[in-house]
């Protein structure tokens, strides 16, 4: 429970909001951030799928080195890397313990390491790509590769609204706690306190459901006034909106270098 309290102190609402805005808008100046979204998507699609089908350790290792370098270039926040490492380690370790229990031996470690390597290549690639795109860029990129306008709108909306929604939820939660009565006895392993907190966390959604639905209505009315639905359904509007997105010299250079590196990997290893 001490552990829980420590975490809850670290993740105060303000802290979370700051961290969120930082991940969203913090890395606008890195090399990857200046690339065109389409370049990043192409790059990512390769690194997101191909590692699954490669079983040669040396090639995987080479890819791993490459994505580590891109992650470094993208200046991803250390907190995210930490979360990723913990997740990978716990998953791999868990599998290992369980397979030892079922009569595996040390030979089990190698395939698991390869699996972990694959997973880390994929997740590092996604982190370096998606952390270096700010929301506007991401939504424009998605729009360009044919996602519906609603999706890109939702991303922009999410980034705008989430901090205020979080604050509202926090207020409701606090007012529930103010008016309610916390359990006097903590119970075994604090279970009464945990149950109480869970109950309040769920109940707080009731007022939030109603107020958010009002807000959703206002949003949609505003969208209608701006004529956004016309834009969602007519390709020429989209074209006009995305006219400034173009692949430039450094995009081609980046893709070319990646391809060169990978071909070298495949040939020499």
């Amino acid at each position: 429970m001490e552990y829980t309290r420590k975490w809850s102190e670290k993740f105060s609402v303000e802290q979370v909001k700051i961290e969120l805005l930082n991940t969203a808008y913090g890395n606008g100046h890195t090399f990857l951030a200046r690339l065109d979204p389409i370049t990043l998507f192409i790059w990512y699609i390769f690194f997101g799928i191909v590692p699954w089908f490669i079983h040669q350790e040396t090639i995987l290792l080479g890819m791993f080195v490459f994505v580590v370098i891109t992650t470094f270039i993208a200046k991803v926040s250390p907190l995210i890397i930490l979360i990723l490492c913990l997740g990978l380690l716990s998953q791999g370790g868990y599998l290992l313990v369980a397979s030892l229990f079922f009569g595996g031996n040390l030979a089990t470690i190698l395939p698991l390491l390869v699996l972990t390597l694959k997973l880390s290549v994929i997740s590092l690639a996604s982190i370096s790509v998606f952390c270096s795109m700010d929301p506007d860029k991401l939504s424009n990129g998605l729009l360009k590769i044919g996602f519906p306008g609603q999706v890109s709108f939702s991303i922009a909306y999410g980034y705008r609204m989430l901090p205020s929604l979080l604050e509202e939820y926090h207020h409701i939660f606090l007012s529930f706690r103010l008016r309610g009565k916390a359990p006097e006895k903590k119970g075994f392993l604090y279970w009464r306190a945990i149950v109480y907190f869970c109950k309040v966390a769920v109940l707080s959604f009731y007022p939030l459901l109603l107020s958010t639905s009002k807000r959703a209505r206002t949003t949609v009315e505003a969208l209608e006034t701006k004529g956004s639905f016309y834009g969602f359904n007519h390709p020429e509007v989209k074209k006009l909106k995305l006219a400034n997105m173009k692949m430039q010299k450094h995009d081609y250079l980046f893709l070319g270098f990646t391809a060169f590196y990978l071909v070298c990997l495949f040939i020499f290893l």
Partner: peptide, 23 residues
Amino acid sequence: SQKMMVFILSMSLYGLSNMITEL
């Protein structure tokens, strides 16, 4: 527009709850 309202409502609420459960 009504579909969009349902969509936005569900998106923002579930997204918020997801963030809470992640933390």
